[in-house]
Amino acid sequence: MDIGYDAAHMLGAVVLLMSFALLYQRRIFSVITVFTFQALALATAAAWQGYAQGEPHLYVTALLTLVLKAIAIPLALHRIILRLNIQRTVDAALSVGLTMVAGVSLVTLSILLVLPVTTDAATLTREGLALSLSVVLLGLLMMITRRNAVSQVVGFMSIENGLIFAAIGVAGMPLIVEMMVAFSVMVAFIIFGIFLFQIRERFDTLDLQKIDSYRGESR
């Protein structure tokens, strides 16, 4: 038994599991809580890979994930939801059952896609890649099936989690920290800089269906 392999595998499975959990949450606070758990699992995975590969910059990645995604962003989202008195439930475009079926098919798809083409890579890398592609696709599914701006942002950040998970799994991948910072700055800009306040101010709602009815053409 290789403990390093098992631990990395288990952490990846937790990240994927949290992606599934994100899909069926009905209340907005539980969406944020589940996202926090995913970020925690990702931070642990990054730290573990840092130890296993002997790459100190992965500890920085782990720390950034922990501070930004498991603490700062969830807290800020909580505050915004309370301050702006946003509706606490999330409307979904698909029922839970259908979303789960779609999710399982996406995971199958990514396994079928990744495993045959990466035959000469290390087992852990291949499986990590299949897991992270699944997380990316499930994040996309979440963005499609949710009509609420906050859960779309959470979906976007879970896609980012999948990408970081892919990057830490490949030995010696440079620039992970820089990429993560670039992404986080973007998300922070979007969330706090304008959208939640501007959308709220203009439309008095964060339900994107109402926003979508504004079309430039109809003016």
């Binding site: 976007f156 304008i194 959208f195 959308i199 203009r202 926003i211 430039g216 003016r219």
Partner: peptide, 17 residues
């Protein structure tokens, strides 16, 4: 404007993905 914010939101979501 409402349309401007919607455009920026769409831009962010699609180009972000």
């Amino acid at each position: 404007t409402a349309a401007g914010i919607e455009a920026a939101w769409k831009y962010f979501i699609l180009c972000g993905v």
